[in-house]
Simulated scan of single mutants.
Amino acid sequence: MVALACDIGGTNTRLGLVRNGILLPESTGSYANDEFEDFYAVAAAFLRERREHRVDSVCIALAAVATAEGATLTNRDWTIARDRVAATCSAGKVDFINDFEALGYAMGQVEKLETQCLTPDTAAGQPGPRLVLGAGTGFNASAWCPSRFGGEPHVVAAECGHMTLPLAGETEFSLQCALSAGRGRASVERALSGRGLFEIYQWQCAQAGRPPRAETAAAVSRGAVARQDEDCVAAALMFLRFLGRVCGDLALAYLPFSGLYLSGGVSRALAPLLAEDPTFLSAFRAKGRMAGFMETFPVHLLCDDGTALHGCAEWLRLTLAAGG
């Protein structure tokens, strides 16, 4: 049985072939969404390049709220419909899941993933949930929860990017005014995304009375990691403070004793600061009387941007095992 795994983000689409529930690493490919009219064109190009005329089933992870019939992406004007996907891929079955739901399913096989430990002094962790969350084009999270009574684990999906951004202190409330201008409020995603990092940088430059020199979020990340631009560094550290605080809040909600895993392009771009600067972990653990308890959660960075494809493969395996 050959299936197609798809991870459709706001910026890129990643695809891979799955045989009997196992992702074939040599088959994977990544495509820039700006170069295609719609997802169907991406899927057709992928299958054509690999000389596959049809697949038995398709699992699509979307940066959106997924329904049985498809979804419209949150950060791109693409609507993906089940019947058109089936026609494009000549597939008998098409499933849609949230992109972070896919990352959650990948947590069941985390030993196969490329990761970097950010808390080397923390024990490996006791049996319990794993939480995956992170910042890229947007922000979200999901929790992988092992079964207490046998059987398969389950994944709890969420829409955490639309929660209200937690703020502390006069400086952050000043930033909140900038992030919420014309929007009514500042959501988590308004700060914790590529666009959010750039808006924080613009605010930082205005506060310092200097014109912005970086023109993109990627340039801000590079300037911060290289310590070449003080405004880039200040913006990145503010970003990491928010990231640590939100991660800490979600850790208290889900109690990920088996580990918390950071994902997303912005998180990976700031990896040196995550590993070397105390800002993220300090904010993560700053929970008053629960500060000591927060040290029990191992924190890792997911280094492989194909993790969601592994999650789609796991979804396909579970579906096949269940006779779906």
Rank of each mutant, 00 (worst) to 15 (best):
G125F: 13
G209Q: 05
A219P: 07
G29F: 01
R185S: 13
A269L: 06
L309Q: 05
F297I: 07
F242I: 02
Y105R: 06
F293C: 13
G10Q: 08
A219K: 05
A275F: 03
R14T: 05
A45R: 15
E159K: 14
V55M: 09
K287L: 12
L118D: 01
L23S: 04
K93F: 04
L62H: 01
G150H: 11
N33E: 06
S282G: 10
G151V: 10
A86M: 08
Y261P: 03
L274F: 15
Y261E: 08
A206P: 10
V155P: 02
A217N: 01
I22W: 13
V246E: 02
T122A: 10
E199P: 04
C232M: 07
L167E: 01
M290A: 15
H154M: 12
G70P: 00
G29T: 04
N33H: 09
A219C: 06
A102E: 04
I8M: 14
S267M: 05
A181N: 12
N33W: 05
R241I: 01
G150E: 11
H310P: 04
L113Q: 15
G292C: 03
C59D: 11
A66Y: 04
L118H: 02
A63S: 14
A68R: 13
T122I: 11
L24H: 08
E49N: 14
A208W: 04
S180A: 15
L255N: 15
R185G: 08
L250S: 05
R268A: 01
G92I: 00
P127I: 02
F293Q: 12
S30N: 14
V110K: 13
P25H: 01
R183I: 07
V65G: 08
A275D: 10
G128K: 03
C89R: 05
G16A: 13
L62S: 02
P278Q: 01
G134H: 00
Y105V: 04
I8Q: 12
F96C: 09
P146H: 04
G29E: 07
L237Q: 07
D121K: 15
T307Y: 00
G70F: 00
E152L: 14
L167Q: 04
A235K: 05
N33D: 06
S27T: 15
A43M: 13
L131K: 07
R82V: 02
D99Q: 10
N12V: 08
A44Q: 14
A208D: 14
A86F: 03
L270N: 04
V220D: 00
L175D: 00
A236H: 13
A271I: 02
A208I: 01
S142G: 03
L309G: 03
L167T: 08
L316G: 09
